[in-house]
Simulated scan of single mutants.
Amino acid sequence: MVRRAAVVEPHVLQRNGAVRLLRERGGLQVVHGTDSLAGLLEWMRGRDERHWPHLLVAELLPIAPAGGDLRALAALRRAGMRVLLLSSLDSRHDVRAVREAGVDGLVSKTDSEDVLIASVMRVLDGEQVVTAAAEAAARDDSRIPGLSPQESRLLALYADGWSISAAAEELGVRPDTARKYLSRIKQKYAAVGVEARTKVDLIRTAWRDGLADPEA
């Protein structure tokens, strides 16, 4: 049986490279390549199910704030498609969201072509695959400082748009204490080489480390 695949990748050169690799090294029939899940769904609507891909190889990060990609991903999986996330894995929060929504494979863009093709074959055979590089990237704690529970909670609230006064009240501490927490958070991130001097820096860091939800 000819096994069919589709590629979703926003960057043209990377998309073309993945298509070539799946065809030449994987022996797959790549039926469609596009820059978004919406583009794939639009293509599928005009074709008989017998021509739909068995496998989707996709870069799905960052997740769109409205959550449309996660709903589309769930719909594709209900239709029986297997999904392999091929990603730079920059945001742990988004990685967790995609894994919870359901993917069959997780491959880092730092993995070799051999690893990617082997992972594709295993996913098509019904296995769940997470490469060592992908697992390391998804859980990489080398740039996460040891925040206390109160500091983590404050950072999450702050990244979600709470003022220092409102966050302090939520935590049951004085605003001056909350400001001290914030100062320590910045110092701890600086100690592991992470830029966290501004509010924007802190918000991006909280999103990256899975402490806050970008949709919030």
Rank of each mutant, 00 (worst) to 15 (best):
D176W: 10
S91R: 06
A178F: 02
L40Q: 08
W162C: 02
P62M: 04
L61C: 05
R20V: 09
Q29D: 15
L106V: 14
D141C: 06
D201W: 06
G102H: 01
L202K: 08
H93I: 02
R184L: 07
D209I: 05
V194S: 03
A64I: 00
R47H: 15
V7N: 05
S112D: 06
E59F: 11
A101Y: 02
Q14R: 08
H54D: 15
A134R: 06
L116F: 12
R3M: 14
R23I: 13
E59W: 12
L56P: 12
M121K: 11
I164H: 07
W43R: 02
R96T: 06
L124Y: 05
L171C: 08
V8Q: 02
M1P: 05
R77K: 11
V57E: 10
V192K: 06
T205L: 01
D104H: 13
D160A: 13
A168H: 04
L86G: 04
D160K: 03
A101W: 01
T198M: 05
A101Q: 03
D114A: 07
N16T: 05
L202G: 03
S142L: 11
Y158W: 14
Q14G: 09
A133Q: 14
V95P: 04
A5K: 00
R174Y: 10
V107N: 00
D140I: 00
D125C: 11
L28P: 11
M1Q: 06
L202S: 03
A167T: 08
P62K: 02
A190H: 12
R4Q: 09
H54A: 08
V2E: 15
A168R: 13
L61H: 06
A166P: 00
S87V: 09
I185W: 08
R47D: 12
A138E: 07
M1A: 14
L89S: 04
V12C: 09
T177F: 12
L76S: 07
L73W: 00
L55N: 01
S148E: 10
M121Q: 15
V200R: 13
I144K: 04
A38L: 04
D35G: 11
L155T: 07
Q29M: 15
S165E: 15
G80K: 13
S112Q: 06
K180R: 15
S165L: 11
G193C: 12
R197Q: 10
A137L: 13
M81N: 08
G161D: 12
D114I: 11
R50W: 01
V31G: 09
R153W: 05
V57K: 04
D213N: 15
R4E: 07
D35H: 10
R153D: 07
L124A: 00
L73E: 03
W207D: 02
A132F: 11
G146I: 01
W52I: 12
I185D: 09
R25E: 02
R45E: 15
S142A: 10
Q14S: 13
S119G: 12
P145F: 01
V19F: 13
E169R: 15
P214M: 07
D69M: 00
V31A: 10
L124I: 06
S119V: 11
V115A: 05
R15F: 08
E42C: 10
L60E: 09
S91P: 08
P10K: 01
L202H: 04
R184Y: 09
E24P: 00
V2T: 14
R208K: 11
E195V: 10
S148K: 12
R96F: 04
L157P: 01
